[in-house]
């Protein structure tokens, strides 16, 4: 608008060219003093002023690391993508992949919310594990992958429990079946089998209920959920009995 010229935003001043090594070293010193924000500014200047300098690759990696350290996850992910695009076969790719995956992982929401961040973390860790299985980052990625998978199973459970409590038993059963079929290694598998027992009982399908409880008992005999299933069936005068080769039996590990 008209007034902009008078007291408008400051004009971009001409930046003095600082040698690449000085910028990079300055950024490292800043990071030692926990001044990550100023370090990032120096590294970005390095990237801009010396795009062809051999230090640029290391500088880009440091930008990813610095953003990750101060919790600016979206910026860290963007910087990681820039690094991966420019140096697809760089020696630091596993570490950058790990930083990117963990940037997603750190933002994972609880299971009552959208789990898109878990899926992003899974995809990134999957690339890391498939392409660099021997790298030390892959080991940690595998653990975090399990947790992220567990979140997806947790989301199904939370929706299933909502439908169960709301009286829509068939919708609930289908959600718990999804967990039993797709996420057998998740920590929710025991509860999923228990909830199937509940759902089938509520519908009156007693054979299906006893089968579900039987599989739960067979695979997880000492589980708290099996004890509850046993009691639940006991109250109805039933006992977990494996119904002649139920599909659930196919899960005998």
């Amino acid at each position: 608008c008209a007034g902009g010229g008078l007291f408008g935003p400051p004009k971009v001043k001409e930046e003095p060219i600082v040698p690449a090594a000085a910028l990079y070293q300055g950024a490292l010193d800043d990071m030692d003093r926990q001044y990550y924000q100023t370090a990032i500014q120096k590294l970005e200047k390095l990237e801009r002023q010396h795009p062809r300098d051999p230090l640029a690759e290391q500088g880009k990696l440091m930008i990813v690391y610095a953003n990750y350290r101060i919790g600016k996850f979206d910026e860290a992910i963007l910087a990681a993508d820039r690094y991966l695009a420019l140096y697809p076969s760089g020696k630091e790719v596993p570490y950058v992949l790990w930083l990117k995956g963990t940037a997603y992982f750190a933002q994972i929401k609880d299971i009552t919310r959208d789990q898109q961040l878990s899926r992003d973390a899974i995809d990134t860790y999957q690339i890391l594990i498939n392409n660099y299985p021997k790298s030390e980052h892959a080991i940690d990625a595998k653990e975090k992958l399990l947790v992220a998978y567990d979140q997806l199973a947790g989301k199904e459970m939370s929706v299933g429990r909502y439908y169960l409590g709301n009286g829509q038993y068939t919708a609930a059963i289908n959600r718990f079946r999804e967990v039993v079929e797709k996420w057998q290694t998740s920590t929710h598998i025991e509860e999923a089998l228990y909830r199937l027992t509940e759902g089938y009982l509520l519908l009156g399908l007693t054979t299906e209920a006893t089968s579900a409880a039987a599989v739960l008992g067979h695979n997880y005999p000492s589980s708290e959920w099996y004890r509850r299933a046993f009691e639940l069936l006991g109250k109805q005068g039933l006992a977990p009995a494996l119904n002649s080769g139920s599909w659930l039996a196919a899960h005998r590990s």
């Binding site: 919310r113 567990d150 947790g154 009156g204």
Partner: peptide, 20 residues
């Protein structure tokens, strides 16, 4: 099966703890 075949149970409130 009809409505009266449905068993009356109270649904377990405890849940598996989850991350996040």
């Amino acid at each position: 099966y009809t409505l009266d075949d449905g068993k009356v149970i109270n649904i377990e409130t405890r849940r598996t703890p989850s991350f996040g």
